[in-house]
């Protein structure tokens, strides 16, 4: 951030917003926003409790499994669509529909199909993340230099080798970009799943805190969740930058 000619250190905008939060909280304007200092104090008191740790592990479990399936299904499907006209024409309309569909409305259907347990929550998470991962992998493959494909063919690459030695790597910048956005959507998916399907994990905590008007606790858990999503997305952005040097020369 820059004020006049002075370059402020990174994250200063966060400090500013934190300050505003504190002032609004102290002014007692609304019970909904307790002062930031109080929220942070609550955060540290909550973080070690068994309830929080169970919620964290349940959420992380559903989140990582959901993202895992979104990646191992989404990336190959996207690459297949980028390579194969027929597959593309068959699947693209569906991918586009699901990308913009209000997936929350599908959750009751999933509950009927897969029950009220962890399985449905994981599937919800996958459904939130997978479409953008497919589309990005597809876009990555679409822009592969034709010569690379011809090169692989002329050296008699097997489809297996072409996939693992050329397509995945050539599309890597786009694939990572898709995964980064997919992960952010997966956070949404896992919480919505936990709220709607069975009240477990962070969803249960949100439910508990908000129905008891424990706003300090509510915000504390939300901050933890944001911080984790932010960390994962920054890690992926870092990997993306690492491979972007070759995006121009493919």
């Amino acid at each position: 951030m820059k004020v006049g000619n002075i370059q402020l250190p990174g994250m200063s905008s966060l400090l500013l917003w934190g300050l505003i939060w504190e002032i609004v909280g102290r002014s007692g304007l609304t019970f909904f926003v307790p002062p930031l200092s109080e929220v942070i104090a609550t955060l540290f008191s909550v973080i070690g409790t068994p309830a929080f740790l169970t919620a964290l592990s349940e959420t992380a479990y559903a989140f990582f499994l959901g993202v895992f399936f979104a990646i191992v299904i989404g990336v190959p499907v996207g690459i297949l669509m980028g390579k194969n006209r027929l597959a593309d024409e068959l699947l693209l309309p569906w991918v586009n529909i699901f990308l913009s569909a209000p997936l929350t409305a599908l959750v009751p259907v999933l509950m009927v199909l897969f029950g009220f347990g962890m399985k449905s929550i994981i599937i919800t998470t996958t459904l939130f993340a997978i479409w953008i991962i497919i589309l990005n992998a597809r876009a990555g493959v679409k822009q592969i230099n034709r010569s690379l494909v011809d090169m692989a063919k002329s050296f008699l690459a097997t489809p297996w080798d072409a996939f693992f030695k050329i397509y995945i790597w050539a599309a890597l910048p786009e694939i990572l970009g898709g995964i980064r956005i997919g992960v952010i959507r997966a956070v949404k998916g896992v919480i919505i799943g936990q709220l709607l399907i069975s009240i477990v994990g962070f969803g249960a905590l949100f439910e508990l805190y908000s129905s008891n008007f424990l706003m300090g606790h509510f915000w504390a858990v939300l901050i933890v969740l944001f911080a984790m999503a932010f960390a994962v997305s920054e890690l992926l952005a870092y990997l993306e930058r690492r491979v972007s040097y070759y995006a121009a020369t493919r």
Partner: peptide
């Protein structure tokens, strides 16, 4: 029995 040399090199950037 045939090998191709490409106009745009077709090297693996990674």
């Amino acid at each position: 029995n045939r090998a191709f040399v490409f106009q745009d090199f077709a090297l693996l950037p990674w």
